[in-house]
Simulated scan of single mutants.
Amino acid sequence: MDVEYTDRAAISDYAGGDIDVLQSLGIMTGKEDGRFDPQASLTGVQMAKVLSGMLKKAKFM
């Protein structure tokens, strides 16, 4: 993982690897203050960024 989130311990073990992959692809980057904030809900804008990033990586966009 390129970014070491300050709240890494709060990320569930089952999700850590997937978060690492999404982060390395630039699809999920966490918060500006260095947190990932795994207990927060995604906003519509955040979800749009994730979907857009995934579609671009899959060459659908």
Rank of each mutant, 00 (worst) to 15 (best):
G17R: 06
G17K: 08
G17N: 14
D18S: 13
D18I: 15
D18L: 15
I19T: 03
I19S: 03
I19Y: 08
I19A: 05
I19F: 04
I19H: 00
D20V: 14
D20I: 06
D20N: 15
D20G: 14
L22H: 02
L22A: 04
Q23G: 02
Q23M: 11
Q23K: 08
S24A: 07
L25E: 05
L25N: 15
G26P: 01
I27P: 03
I27W: 03
I27L: 08
I27R: 00
M28H: 05
M28K: 05
M28P: 05
G30C: 03
G30I: 01
G30D: 03
G30V: 10
K31C: 07
K31S: 14
K31L: 07
E32S: 14
D33K: 00
D33T: 00
G34Y: 09
G34T: 06
R35W: 09
R35I: 05
R35A: 15
F36C: 08
F36N: 02
F36W: 00
F36D: 00
F36E: 02
D37H: 02
D37M: 06
D37V: 02
D37C: 08
Q39F: 08
Q39V: 10
A40K: 08
S41C: 07
S41G: 14
S41L: 04
L42H: 11
L42S: 09
L42Q: 07
T43H: 05
T43Q: 12
T43S: 09
G44K: 04
G44L: 01
V45K: 04
Q46V: 08
Q46W: 01
M47Q: 10
M47A: 14
M47V: 04
M47Y: 09
M47T: 13
A48F: 04
K49V: 08
K49N: 07
K49L: 07
V50R: 08
V50S: 02
L51S: 15
L51V: 11
L51G: 01
L51R: 02
